[in-house]
Simulated scan of single mutants.
Amino acid sequence: MKTTFFRPETVTRRWILIDATDQSVGRLAVVIANILRGKDRPEFTPNAMVGDNVIVINASKLAVDPKKGTQTMHYHHSFYPGGLKATNWNKMLETRSDFLLKRVVRGMLPKNTLGKELLSNLRVYQGPEHPHQAQKPVEFKAN
């Protein structure tokens, strides 16, 4: 049996709309990473962009375990002496929940140029409004 490899030009890409209300951060990120990668499609090719575009709404309503919300930290360093800043997940959910979800999904994608290109197909919004009304997105509900 011959193995078939698909090119990105031959694959039709969909827009998938995901509502993040009361979804666990990690479980939702796994679903998003698999859709971006194209692992849910029969045309999956590991070295090509054959995945779909993902729009995530209501990112500010993500569910985080109370213990994990206080213990898990996001670190940022300004490259100046004493410039290390630490923020816990609860505070990140209040202020920058879209960045938090994008950061978790980025950790589940390949660590190369393909991973960076795949991440550009993810759009995360804190509220229910998004500017992608021209496309007809497929409604998707993660477990």
Rank of each mutant, 00 (worst) to 15 (best):
E9Q: 14
Q126F: 01
T113F: 08
T45P: 02
K136D: 15
N34T: 06
I55A: 06
L118F: 03
P128A: 08
T87K: 03
T21D: 08
K116T: 10
K85S: 15
L28A: 02
P66N: 06
L17G: 11
R37A: 12
E129M: 00
Y80H: 14
N88W: 02
R37Y: 00
G38R: 04
A86H: 06
S24T: 11
R27Y: 06
N90P: 04
S60R: 15
V138C: 13
V124E: 04
P8C: 09
E43S: 11
A86I: 12
Y75P: 09
E94D: 14
L101W: 05
R96T: 11
P110C: 01
I16C: 03
G69E: 08
G51Q: 03
K61H: 13
D22N: 15
G107F: 06
D65N: 15
G83P: 09
T3F: 12
L101V: 02
G26P: 03
T70R: 15
V50S: 00
N47K: 13
R27I: 02
D19R: 08
M73P: 10
E129F: 04
V54C: 07
R106T: 10
E94F: 00
N112Q: 11
A20C: 04
E129T: 02
L114A: 05
K67A: 14
R96Y: 12
D52V: 09
L28C: 01
K85M: 11
R37L: 15
A29W: 05
E43R: 00
E94M: 10
R14P: 09
T12E: 15
G127C: 02
A63Q: 04
R96M: 07
G107A: 05
L101P: 00
V31K: 13
T87C: 04
P110G: 12
L118Y: 03
S60N: 13
P46R: 04
G69T: 07
V50R: 02
K102H: 11
A29T: 00
S78W: 05
T72G: 06
T72L: 07
L36T: 04
G107L: 08
V105Y: 05
T3V: 15
L100N: 06
S120G: 07
L62A: 07
P131M: 05
N88Y: 08
S78C: 11
D22F: 03
S78G: 11
S120V: 01
F44V: 09
F44L: 02
K136Q: 15
F99D: 14
I55H: 08
K111Y: 01
E43Y: 09
R123F: 10
T4P: 04
T12D: 14
L62E: 09
A63T: 13
D65V: 09
V31D: 14
L118Q: 02
G38W: 00
L28T: 10
V50P: 02
R37Q: 14
D19T: 06
V30M: 03
